[in-house]
Design a binder for these strands. Structure first.
Lengths: 356, 356
DNA sequence: AGATATTGAACAATCGATTGCGTAAATTGC
DNA sequence: GCAATTTACGCAATCGATTGTTCAATATCT
């Protein structure tokens, strides 16, 4: 139970003032080389480590980033955080993570806690589309950089790192149309802007190609949990005049749809085309592999972090990252005489070594 | 750019001392009801929030937990962290996350940073099995609770939350043996204790049932990245006298093995049985679904967090959580006349709502 | 040699909340 | 009515590092 050594202890040892020690330890030029060296040597020997809490109080800089997401253990957010943490670490910053579990009141609470902890920046993906931003305003007042990621507010100014959900959904839907699917359904979640945008992109594509928008094959739930996804997929696939393709707003729902279709004896992609969104790991594991929109979560995290850390002028900037349609077996109808879709399996290795 | 309001500002307003304000704000009984109420009301009105950095310095408690993992964006760790954060939040604690990217020197660095930040507890899954624990000793010296999770050191005392890797691997291997597989290979990683234990469990099962241990069908790499896994799987499956089953030390490797086998025209499970480890989301998505060992990462995180937070007496306690063999299609040979394995598909919903 | 410039380090305030101790005023007890 | 409590609050130190300012001791220059 050794008590920590402080600059005062070191100062006493050399009969100098704490200020001299503080300066010597960081190589300030106003301290002689001899003193600097002997103090640093002594500090190393005694295992001195600065008390960064004290330093934080004095300098009013915590070198800490707050990150707020709904669930850490969703692949997208896990990768986002991984990217943020990597960049933060390079800059000597810590990362505090909070989950909102998609509840607005929890979001308010954790955001306030981060505010009290004097984080030097905050990156947030909103829980719920809301009109109350009081908990976020305070950061602006204190001039703390605030960056929204993925689920951004429409009615609040600030830096945003996003993808073009409308355009991506448009491309995904267009792909299905070009593959010859005629009745393309959509499964989505309610209440969040990104899903609204994906829905709009889907509808725009149908419109462009003169296909009807049939509300009976568009279904949604407050959250796309496994249970909800399965229930919705079952409803769509078992109804009369069922869709011949599904564009799901997230991969997990698309995968569940594929699994259900196979269970029902439907062939994917011949009887049912499926496209997802995210390019989660599961998308290249399901059979047939899932056509999906790839967005770069690690990169989004890195960019968001860079942005928070380099926040010189706080103009509201919106950074839109490119997505990519990854075409795999689930949406490309097989030609005659080609009985498997393996030729379409697009193997992709992530740029990051995920080996355990 | 409003500057923050402090207890001194409030004190001035009421012509009382800061100590009175401080006490009033937390309802200390030595302050009269009237004062307490008016001060609290005023504080609320002015949007006062305690500067927790100052409080931390004074009280020497940061109410912060440090978490160190190799990669945040591995499903196991993402869930682990999610569990930790949930519990921490309930207790009013923050969680700082750091990644080591499996590098020992990075681990030393981030651990030291957490130490300097005066975290009130630390939960760590080691990067590399090592003999140097100086960076961890300091926590003991300062009496900071330290809990190891998953990848724990063999040569360092401390609380540990783990699963029985040996026993789990034994059960997994035994399952393959009982299914009638005769040449069971193993794919694993080198240099980490948990993998050594799984290897030992595998060998013990073979021994018990009188099967040879054939080093030519046991293969490993420093890390089980996708590239490495694929290379190893290919080597095993293409060699003469190839194994008729593979027990892979992690799910992602098992999935890659299944995909490769299918590409090679092998039927899983008839020509090749496969068992994985972790019960990652991909395991129930691959076709056939993967038999695997389920360990409870969210629960592990919660228990580790509870343990750190309630650290009364610091005796070294080892908590071993149960695992479960989840039998799915990849390891159960089909009976005649049963042309699909769907009857074996074991649908499982995680206890946590993962809907986006 | 005298004046000026430079070096090296001490002083003291500061960041904002917390808390042990002391004390005047108000209340209670007899 | 006076001592004994109790109530309500102020004082001042403290947590440990940082930093603007000051100042004495050398060093440099004409």
């Amino acid at each position: 139970m050794s008590t920590d050594i402080t600059i005062y202890d070191i100062a006493k040892n050399f009969n100098v003032s704490p200020s001299t020690v503080s300066r010597a330890l960081k190589g300030h030029k106003s301290i002689s080389k001899k003193r600097t060296q002997e103090i640093q040597a002594y500090a190393r020997e005694k295992g001195f480590q600065v008390n960064s809490v004290a330093a934080k109080l004095r300098t009013q800089k915590t070198h800490t980033l707050g990150v707020v997401v709904t669930w850490i253990n969703q692949p997208f957010f896990a990768s986002l955080i991984s990217g943020i943490e990597s960049v933060a670490q390079e800059h000597g910053f810590h990362v505090i993570i909070s989950q909102t579990h998609d509840q607005h009141d929890l979001e308010v609470q954790v955001v306030n806690n981060l505010f009290n902890s004097r984080v030097d920046g905050i990156i947030i993906s909103l829980a719920i589309e809301t009109e109350s931003f009081a908990h976020l305003e305070q950061f602006k007042n204190r001039n703390v950089p605030l960056v929204f990621v993925d689920r951004v507010p429409s009615a609040f100014k600030g830096d945003k790192v996003i993808i073009d959900n409308f355009q991506s959904a448009f491309i995904a839907t267009e792909h299905l149309i070009k593959q010859g699917y005629k009745r393309i359904g959509h499964i989505t979640a309610t209440g969040k802007l990104i899903f609204k945008q994906r829905l709009d992109g889907y509808k725009a594509a149908l419109n462009k190609y003169g296909l009807d928008i049939d509300e009976s094959i568009i279904a949604s739930a407050p959250s796309l949990s496994e249970e909800n996804s399965l229930a919705i997929a079952r409803k769509l696939l078992t109804q009369e005049n069922r869709p011949d393709a599904i564009f799901a707003a997230i991969d997990s729902t698309a995968v569940i749809t594929i699994q259900l279709a196979k269970e029902m004896g439907l062939n994917v992609p011949n009887d049912l085309g499926v496209v997802g969104f995210n390019n989660d790991p599961i998308s290249s594991v399901v059979d047939p592999q899932l056509t999906t929109i790839s967005q770069p979560p690690v990169l989004m995290g890195k960019i968001a972090a860079e942005h928070v850390l380099n926040n010189k002028e706080h103009m509201s900037e919106v950074i839109t990252l490119d997505t990519e349609l990854i075409v795999r077996g689930s949406s490309v109808r097989l030609t005659e005489g080609n009985s498997n879709g393996k030729d379409l399996s697009s193997k992709q290795f992530s740029s990051q070594d995920m080996g355990q």
